[in-house]
Design a protein around this nucleic acid. Structure first.
Lengths: 339, 339
DNA sequence: GTCGGTCAAGAGAGCGCTCTCTCACCATGG
DNA sequence: CCATGGTGAGAGAGCGCTCTCTTGACCGAC
């Protein structure tokens, strides 16, 4: 299509000529191989400096079959992803870890037609490993993803093709269990929950943990509203919940983003928090502490999760055989004013 | 170092053999060139399907001198970047735009030793364009960045090497001017501001706009505290401000992230907001509306900014000569309860 | 003085792709 | 009937790099 524009960048060849040595020698110097005479290495370094030589990444990738890049795959809508502080924190952790390596992060957000785009990208040899964040059970990508390329999941992958995958997760069930226990301890008995999507492990596990905590006290939730981890979804869930169970006195919301929205809605609906309804969120997002009623919530180590994800990917690339297939990080209940 | 592991992926060559045609023909089919006989194209497509062939990206990049990738360069600490909703929103916009293209985003966060890492990366031919976000005047990267590769800045680049650069910015000065005007309209006269870093254009421009608004009413700020766009910095700035000017009655804080922190601190210090001190933020981050006192703020179209950045980068890559070097997006004052 | 051993540097192939150049083929017109 | 032109497909070079293989220089040893 477009004419090949001359990049005008120096090549190994040019450095070799400049230094009066062979291409191979320059390559050896660039890659720090010890079998090069000191004086010669100095000459080569000088030539590199003079020409401002930087190795071409594509050429290296082609011959080495190694790109020094990791893909972050997000089979989710951009807005849902970026508006969710948990995901952003995971990316922060990944980035922080990669900054200490010489790997580059490739961000691939593919909500539309994820199957084709993602699998093609991973098969193109553009990256050495992939990290999946925000995947759903239905995502073809999980089933499809070539097991030849190291892959790590943020959160337990659900659905087919998930078995044997390496993942790092928060102990969602345990965290939700704590939330349930806490509400009961605060004397609440008419408890409901607003969940995340049940095709995501985080949604499912948080619901299960909460229900189990209630069951241990011979209680059952008076309402379970399944929604989508968005503030808007939470508000609609609240409306339905209160329409059916006006005497609700405790609410566990499966993410802080939703919990803060619920909180605001409850107050505008005339419910005092926590006097009328106690609310517990999940995540300990920044929003939790600055909300109009600072939110009791379950803290999860999201940044750490990102770090561990990147670390696992790096180790898999290295061929490290002892990467733990499953890592589950502990949660902690943070008590604030909403309960 | 590592032995070259056989990728085991089909190559053009193998597809050619499978289809009984030449490499060139397969290449033509893959790239949708019209000069191929229909039947032959069908045969090739079948072979591609059978072998699950996907073109190798590195090989293509090498010969085409085009990577179909854009770098997002962040010469800032990971935490400061990811904890700032404005930056995240910009990334969201960039991603949203790129999703509609077949370009990939390379995220390069390089706070330590940014000069070497960034310039080397850009010189390696790994990307076709670069988008700079969160740059400071001191950043060597700005001066250094090769003008041979299309580059776009989020926010007016300050300092040396900034002249003639393509950038997209919010009308920071005008927004801050509105904030100042609004505080004055609300009857406040003892006005102070907490600024961002003055080596970032956003920090400088917001200060200027605010001071200008005051000057138009023959006022001068009773306090100017320069800090770093972080909540912690805002709190320290507040402490200093109130120690020196206890009768402060209006405060313009140059980012919502800081404004919310200031708000919380002011209230814990016994000041009522807005009765004692009216507060205006900047950005209209999600936090602004959910804060304990919903925040009056200056809205900036951050996601749109990201979209435009990506769009400009794409157009520059296309060789489009009429990319506007300067785009300034309007702001809007959002009145809430803090004033 | 010759030989084998060691080590540094060069020669050259090849990674997977694209693109130009060439050629074969068929249709057309004089 | 042959010259002409147009069209579709193949041959082959080359993008910038790494790596194996080979060469050559130098050393000590017999």
């Amino acid at each position: 299509m477009s004419a090949r524009p001359p990049l005008g960048r120096p090549t190994l060849e040019m450095v070799a000529k400049e230094a009066g040595v062979s291409r191979a020698t320059v390559s050896r110097v660039v890659n720090g191989q010890p079998t090069v005479n000191e004086d010669m290495a100095a000459v080569v370094h000088a030539a590199i400096e003079r020409l401002q030589y930087v190795p071409n990444r594509a050429a290296r990738t082609l011959v080495n079959r190694t790109s020094n890049a990791i893909a972050l795959i997000v089979p989710e809508e951009t807005t849902r992803f970026f508006q969710n502080p948990f995901f952003v924190a995971v990316v922060e952790g990944i980035t922080a870890r990669l900054e200490q390596s010489d790997f580059i992060l490739n961000l691939l957000v593919a909500s539309s037609d994820p199957r084709a785009k993602i699998t093609r990208f991973l098969a193109s040899g553009a990256v050495d490993a992939a990290i999946f964040v925000a995947h759903h059970a239905g995502d073809a990508s999980i089933t499809d993803v070539d097991r030849r390329i190291p892959t790590v999941f943020a959160g337990r992958p659900a659905g087919e093709g998930a078995e044997g995958r390496v993942y790092i997760d928060t102990d969602n069930a345990d965290g939700a269990h704590r939330a349930g226990q806490h509400l009961i301890q605060r004397g609440r008995r008419r408890l409901a929950t607003i969940t995340g999507p049940l095709d995501m492990a985080a949604g499912q596990d948080r619901l299960n943990g909460f229900v189990r905590a209630l069951a241990e006290h011979e209680l059952e939730p008076v309402g379970v509203e399944v929604t989508d981890f968005t503030p808007r979804g939470a508000v609609r869930a609240c409306e339905r919940l209160l329409a059916r169970t006006p005497d609700l006195d405790g609410l566990f919301v499966a993410s802080d983003l939703m919990a803060v929205a619920a909180l605001t809605w409850l107050r505008s609906a005339g419910r005092d928090v926590p006097a009328d309804v106690a609310v517990v969120g999940f995540g300990d997002d920044p929003a939790a502490s600055i909300a109009e009623v600072p939110l009791t919530t379950v803290r999860q180590p999201s940044i750490e999760m990102g770090r561990l994800l990147a670390d696992a990917a790096l180790r898999l690339i290295d061929g490290d055989a002892d990467v733990a297939p499953v890592t589950v990080l502990p949660t902690e209940l943070i008590r604030r004013s909403s309960t």
